Simulated scan of single mutants.
Amino acid sequence: MQIDLTGLTAIVTGSTGGIGYATAHGLAASGASVVVNGRTQGAVDKAVATLDAAVHDAKVTGVAADLGTPEGCDTLLAAVPQTDILVNNVGIFGPQDFFDTPDSEWQRFFDVNIMSGVRLARAYAPGMVERKWGRILFLASESALNIPADMIHYGFTKTAVMSIARGLAKRLAGTGVNVNSILPGPTLSEGVAEMLRGDAEKTGKTIEEAGVDFVKSHRPSSILQRMATVDEVANMIVYAASREASATTGAALRVDGGVVDTI
C-alpha cells in the first residue's frame, strides 16, 4: 500500500517538534501540502526549513498562533481558510498532584488540549462536508483510559477528546468526513527525552535505556516494553489521514504498545 496525499492540504497543530513534527514530515513525504503550527514564529520557521530540507519537493508553510486561545484559532483560520486533513495534535502535559492543581491549571489544560480541537473542527468540518471528503484526527492518549494518578488534569482532557471524536464522527455520518482519535502510549519525544535526561545521566544509561526503565516502572502492562518513537505514532496518524482509511471512523486507534490491558 502506497499512501498518496497529493492535492490535499493538511494542518497539523503543535507541529514544531515531537509527534506533531513527525506527523507533518510523514504527511509531506506522502505528497500533502502541510501547514505547520507552533506558538512562536521562530519555532515555526525552523520547523518549516527543516521539513523543506528533509522532504524532496515538500510543500510546507507555517502559521504561528497560540491555539489555546480563540484569537489564536482565528489567526490560523484567517491564514488557512480550509483544509482536507486536520490533525488536532497540540497539547500540554506535566505531572502535578490533584490537591496542588489550581483552577487556573485545569482551565489551561482544558483550553489547549480540548478547546483548540473543538474550535478548529467546528470551523473546518463544514467545508469538508461540502467537498464530501475530509479527515479530522484528535490526539488522545493511553492516559485517557489509564488515568495517571499524578496527572489527573491531563488524563481527563484526553478522555474528553476521545468522546468528542466519537460524537463528531456520528454527527458527520455519511458525509465522507471521517473522524478518529489516536491514542499513543509512552513516546520518546523531545519533551519526554528531556524529562528522562536526569535519570539517564545519574545511571550512565542512554535516553532510550532510561525510557525502557520508565516504561517497566510506570507502565508495567506495556507489551512493547519500551517507548514508541515519534515516527511510529506518526505512521498511524498518516494512515488514518489517508484515502486508504476510508472505512475507519469513530475509532480510538491505539499506538500504546499494549499498555491498556484490554482487547
Rank of each mutant, 00 (worst) to 15 (best):
I3V: 13
D4P: 06
T6Q: 15
G7E: 10
L8W: 09
L8E: 10
L8K: 15
A10N: 01
I11H: 00
T13S: 14
T13L: 06
G14E: 09
T16C: 13
G18D: 03
T23M: 09
A24Q: 06
H25D: 14
H25L: 12
A28C: 10
S30K: 05
V36I: 14
N37C: 07
T40Q: 14
G42F: 07
G42R: 03
V44D: 02
V44E: 03
V48H: 07
V48I: 10
A49S: 15
D52A: 12
V60R: 07
T61K: 08
G62F: 11
V63D: 11
A64H: 12
L67H: 03
L77M: 15
V80W: 08
P81S: 11
Q82K: 09
L86T: 12
V90A: 15
P95A: 14
D97G: 15
F99S: 11
P102T: 09
P102D: 14
D103Q: 11
W106E: 12
W106D: 11
W106P: 09
V112K: 01
N113P: 00
I114A: 04
S116E: 08
S116T: 15
R119P: 07
R122K: 12
A123Y: 12
Y124P: 03
A125Y: 05
G127A: 13
M128F: 04
M128S: 01
M128C: 07
V129D: 02
V129H: 09
G134M: 06
G134V: 11
L137H: 10
L139R: 03
S143G: 10
S143K: 06
S143R: 08
L145G: 01
L145R: 02
I147K: 02
I147D: 11
A149I: 13
A149Y: 08
A149K: 10
D150P: 01
M151C: 02
H153A: 15
Y154I: 11
G155D: 00
T157H: 00
K158M: 09
A160W: 02
A165E: 06
A165R: 00
A169R: 04
A169E: 05
T175E: 10
L183Y: 00
P184W: 11
G185M: 04
P186Y: 05
E190N: 13
E190R: 04
G191T: 12
V192N: 03
V192A: 11
A193D: 08
L196P: 03
D199F: 10
A200M: 02
E201Y: 03
T203V: 04
G204F: 07
G204E: 10
K205D: 13
T206C: 05
I207V: 14
G211K: 04
D213I: 07
H218Y: 12
S221Q: 13
S221F: 08
S222A: 15
L224M: 12
I237C: 04
E244P: 00
A245P: 06
A245I: 05
T248M: 13
T248Q: 08
V255H: 02
G258D: 00
V260I: 15
